[in-house]
Simulated scan of single mutants.
Amino acid sequence: MSFKKFLFSFTFFKNLFIALIIVVLFLVAFVKFLDFSTNHGEEITVPNLSKMKLEVAEEKLDDEGLEVFLLDTVDFRPEFPPYSIVEQDPIAGSKVKDGRKIYVKLNAGGFAMVTFPDLKDKTFRQATNTLRALGLVEGELKYVPNIAKDIVLEVSCNGKPVKAGDKLMKNSKIDFVLGDGKDLFKEEELDSLNMDQQEIEKDTTH
């Protein structure tokens, strides 16, 4: 039988059909094997990584078939341990596919240092607005006699005077000494001044 006749023979088409079936079965089996070996299609519950060190989270996610990716370090939050995870995306409890990256942010190792501003002779409202912008906290208030009400006369931290340019840790408490807005003269001194004024007026009328 010539080759041309063989190409159009029943035997050729039968063998071709059998070969195609074998190829299809092999591909189906191969895909099934991949699905089985990679857990394709299965969803994984994202664990809660809050307050974990990055190394611990990496081990935990690796066991789950997930990856961790560090995005950034945020300002220190005292409710979290230093260098622990404070945020994650996707959040805990989410359903994800195998191999998904979990993006995390770490807590700083401590409060950052800030430069203390010049608050002397500013109003208490101005001073507190400045402190809050720097991450500092108002502490105790003490009023002393001064004609200017709520004017900052002195500032201190942990009992020590603080001046402009000093370095303080964020979240430090700043204590204030403020003017009470009352006259500096005592009542007796005012009475004496009034009497002197009356004597002057009498002398000028005579």
Rank of each mutant, 00 (worst) to 15 (best):
F26M: 05
I21N: 06
A108N: 02
S9D: 00
F76S: 04
D89F: 06
Y103K: 15
K105D: 08
I18C: 11
D63I: 11
K182A: 02
T205A: 14
F69V: 13
V74T: 10
D98M: 12
N15G: 06
L193N: 04
K4E: 10
M113T: 11
E64W: 06
R132C: 00
I102G: 00
K51C: 08
D180P: 04
M113D: 14
A57I: 00
F8S: 09
L131S: 00
K5H: 08
V68L: 12
K142C: 05
D75N: 08
H40Y: 14
V46P: 09
K186T: 15
E42D: 10
K182V: 03
E140D: 13
D121Y: 03
G139H: 09
T128V: 15
N107A: 01
R77H: 09
E87L: 15
Q198R: 09
V144L: 08
P145D: 08
D118G: 01
K105P: 07
L153A: 04
K182H: 12
N158I: 02
M113Q: 12
K14V: 08
D183P: 14
L16R: 11
D180E: 00
E201C: 03
Y143C: 02
G41L: 06
V137I: 12
S172E: 10
R125T: 12
L193G: 05
A133W: 01
L27H: 03
L131F: 01
L141I: 14
V31N: 14
Q126H: 04
Y103G: 07
I200V: 13
F185C: 02
S2V: 03
F26L: 12
E42I: 07
D75Q: 07
L119E: 00
L190V: 15
F12Q: 06
P82Q: 10
